[in-house]
Simulated scan of single mutants.
Amino acid sequence: MGSPKFALQTLDILYYDKNFDIKLVVSAPDKKRSRGKVTPTPIKEYALGKGLDVITPYSVNTDEFVEELQKREIDFIIVVAFGQLIGKKLLDVYEDRIINLHPSLLPKYRGASPMQFSLLNGEKKTAATAMLIEKGMDSGDILIQSEVPIGDDEDYFDLEERLSQVGAEAIRDALLNFDKVYAERIKQNDEEATYCTKITKEMGKIDWNKSSDEIVNKVRAFVEYPVAFFTYQGKNMKVHKAKVLSGYEANPSYVYKANPKEGLIIGTGNGAIEIKTIQAPGKKAMASETFLLGNKIEEKKKLDE
């Protein structure tokens, strides 16, 4: 069970391993994506290309769906970024046989957006965790937890790619050694649990009173969605890449530099950042130096002046 790109590595590694026979792939229904075109999820598209059976139910918590699984004599259900909660009916029938991949150092960052919040909060490490699903939110016992360092310059795309690979290997290893990892499974400490919320578009707005590190972390975390942004002359300017600079005084939203030679440097609550890649409404993202060849942002003023 999976839907987005993050789940592809797991499906791929299981498909090519002769120890496994994938009886069924379950994904989200097709929907309108870019430019109104109705397209399948990356997982459905991959599965169809490999000749695998695919279904896209609006709910996996029906008698019909459970009966469909039972007809196929399924041993394990693997869940990776599927997007639906697994209800009591499935949990009862496949007790301790539903394994989830969660990209965080559980019990930290339970919930829908652990990779983004790990970056947003400036964490230096995270993990790919293969865990049992139970009725709680990402609270099941841990089978395998593979720690991964987070590089200072890594953004969401970088982290997603690495964790999808490490996570795929963790799922494969949990299945191949299930009796052992199940016997040695680790119960999560609920008192240490933290939770992350669903990401909204408004969360991308840059607050220039924040520190340089906090602003750059927001850029790194939200580079896929919603993309960090600031407003200049009534237009929302998206920031795809930025870095912390030293040697500048705190002066929030003050434009220190804005020219093709020196780039775009803006003051923060404790110094300044350089915006490396910017995107104006209706335009492609580009290097700030290129953007400033044809677009003007006034220097020596605050953005809202």
Rank of each mutant, 00 (worst) to 15 (best):
G204M: 09
D173I: 03
G247Y: 01
A250W: 04
I186C: 06
Q188M: 00
Y248A: 03
N217Q: 10
A183W: 06
A183V: 00
D179P: 00
S164W: 11
D158W: 03
E184V: 00
E191W: 10
D158T: 01
D213E: 15
E169I: 08
D158P: 00
D213A: 14
S164A: 15
T231D: 12
G247K: 12
V223I: 14
K218D: 12
T194W: 08
L175Y: 05
V181W: 05
D179Y: 05
T200Q: 09
C196L: 00
E202T: 15
V223D: 11
K241Y: 02
I186K: 13
N236S: 12
K235D: 10
D173G: 00
D190N: 13
N209E: 09
N217C: 03
I186A: 07
K235H: 11
L245R: 14
K218Y: 04
R185D: 08
A228H: 04
Q188S: 12
T231A: 05
Q233D: 12
N209C: 00
I199W: 08
N217D: 09
K235Y: 07
M237A: 14
G234N: 05
L175F: 07
K201A: 15
M237C: 09
S212Y: 09
I215H: 02
K205F: 03
D190F: 11
Q233L: 11
A242T: 06
N236E: 15
G247Q: 12
V181L: 06
N236W: 01
K235I: 07
I215E: 12
S164C: 00
V239F: 04
E184C: 01
E202H: 06
P226D: 10
L245W: 01
H240M: 11
V239A: 10
E160C: 07
N189Q: 09
C196V: 10
E191V: 03
E191H: 08
V223Q: 13
E214S: 15
F229G: 07
S212G: 07
M237G: 08
A174N: 13
E169D: 15
S164G: 05
A221P: 05
K210V: 02
G167S: 09
L245V: 06
Y232S: 13
V244C: 03
E184M: 03
Y232P: 10
V223H: 12
S212A: 15
F230N: 03
D158I: 01
Y248I: 02
T197S: 15
Y182L: 13
S164H: 07
V239M: 04
Q233N: 15
T197C: 15
L245I: 04
Q165S: 13
E160F: 10
A168M: 04
M203R: 02
A221N: 10
E160K: 14
A193G: 01
G204E: 02
E214Y: 03
Y232V: 07
E169K: 07
E184T: 06
C196S: 02
A221M: 12
N236H: 12
N251M: 05
I199R: 08
K210S: 09
Q233S: 06
F229H: 12
A242G: 08
N217W: 11
M237P: 01
G234I: 13
S212L: 05
A250R: 02
I199P: 03
A228P: 01
M237W: 07
Y182N: 11
Y248S: 10
F229S: 15
G167E: 04
V219S: 06
H240C: 06
V181T: 06
K201C: 02
L159E: 01
